[in-house]
Nucleic acid binder design. Structure first.
Lengths: 110, 110
DNA sequence: AATGATAGTTACTTAATGTAACCTAGTTTA
DNA sequence: TAAACTAGGTTACATTAAGTAACTATCATT
C-alpha cells in the first residue's frame, strides 16, 4: 500500500487539535462560556501558563471569543464561536469511540 | 456556566489522540498496511525516534498490529486493528470541519 | 495601609521532540 | 574476504514545549 497525500487543511486541523489541552478546553467550552479560573479548575493538570497560551491561540484561530465585562473586579468570559461550536461532532465521535473501545476504569471498592 | 465533568474514557481517548503524530500515523494506516520507512517518508517532519515510540504505544493500546514477514531483508508491516479502524469517523469529522472552516491555502503562482 | 478578588505573567525546572550518527542481521558486489 | 546495501530500528545530544511556584496589576473593601 502507498502512503496517502494529505490535504493541508486537514493537516492544520490535526495539528491544532493535537496540541496538548486544546481539545479539553474546547470540550469544556461546549458546556457554555467559562472564565479563566473555571477552565483552570476543570482541568487540574493544566497550568495557567499553558492555558493562557492556548486561549490566545484559539482566539487567533477564531475558535473562541474573549468577552470582557468591565465590572469590579473585572470578569472575562471565554466562549466558542460558530467555528468552535462546529468542532462538537469531532469530540462526539471521540466520545463514541472511547465508550465502545476503551475499558471501563476500575471502580473503587465499596 | 459550570465546567463539565469528563468521562475517564473520553479523557484517555483525547490524551492519546493529542499526542503529537498519533492521528497522522493512524490516518496513513487507514489507507492500508505500511512499513516503517513508508510512514516515515509520508510524514516528513516525524523523526524515526518518535515514530518508533508511537508505534509501540499504539500497539500496546491495541490500535495497530505489527506483522513480521521473515523475508530477507525482513519486512515489517503495521496495520490497524478493528479498534484502530474504528477511529476513522473521528478523522472524517476533522476532515469535514477543516474543509468547512479552514481557509484554502494560497496556491503557488502559475 | 493591609487584604482580597480576577486575570494573568515571569523565572526556573522537567519532560517531550528533533537531529544525526550508529547498530544488527542477512545479501549482494568487488 | 571484505566493503557496501537493505530494513528496521536505537543512542547520545540539542532544542522546544510544558509544569511549578512566585509574582504583577487594578480596583474595592476592611
Amino acid at each position: 500500500m502507498e502512503p496517502t497525500q494529505m490535504c493541508p487543511r486537514f493537516e492544520r486541523a490535526v495539528e491544532m487539535l493535537s496540541k496538548r489541552w486544546t481539545s479539553f478546553i474546547v470540550f469544556q467550552l461546549l458546556g457554555g462560556p467559562l472564565r479563566f479560573v473555571q477552565i483552570e479548575q476543570s482541568l487540574p493538570n493544566l497550568s495557567g501558563k499553558v492555558l493562557s497560551e492556548r486561549l490566545k491561540e484559539l482566539e487567533a484561530e477564531g475558535i473562541i471569543n474573549r468577552h470582557v465585562y468591565p465590572e469590579t473586579p473585572v470578569r472575562i468570559e471565554y466562549s466558542l464561536t460558530a467555528k468552535g461550536l462546529a468542532l462538537a461532532p469531532i469530540l462526539k465521535e471521540i466520545g463514541n469511540w472511547s465508550s465502545e473501545w476503551l475499558p471501563v476504569p476500575c471502580t473503587p471498592e465499596a
